[in-house]
Amino acid sequence: MSAATAARGPAHPLAHLVGTPIPGGSWRLADHENWLGHDALYSTPEQAPHPVMAFVAAQRGLGVTVAELFALWGTDMADGPMLTESSLEFPGEFRAGVDYEVSGTVESVQRKSGRTMGEFDLLTARFELAERVGAPVAVVRNVYALPRRAEQR
């Protein structure tokens, strides 16, 4: 759902987040973390990072903790937020030992309901990793299911 869709119908309680930036920060994949990342992801360590380390970079370079990120979206870790979709795109070369600026925005939010989770929001966030000068080398787009059980009580 796009921001425009979010604006139709009853105002979504998180509609104001669509298009707003996530705090952001910077992160460098250290050589030892590169090695550990390969090993943790069942891959033979090599100089080039495992592609999924771009996900790690986005999460580590957010400028806030994971718990703080979900709190920004009105969700407590204890509520059980879940990753439901993820995409990694590499318009450039993602490397270890390079400082990357991490930026992010909320792309969309959509209220849903299901048998297992009850009422929940599907929130899509987009993160970019870029060197200080230049285009993004990696784009991470995640969709999270954020339970809203408390709102049903």
């Binding site: 973390e33 550990l36 943790a40 992801l41 994971v66």
Partner: peptide
């Protein structure tokens, strides 16, 4: 054990 390492790399407290 690999999940534990990844939890540290991700800074994921879950």
């Amino acid at each position: 054990e690999r999940m534990k390492v990844l939890a540290l790399l991700l800074a994921d407290p879950n």
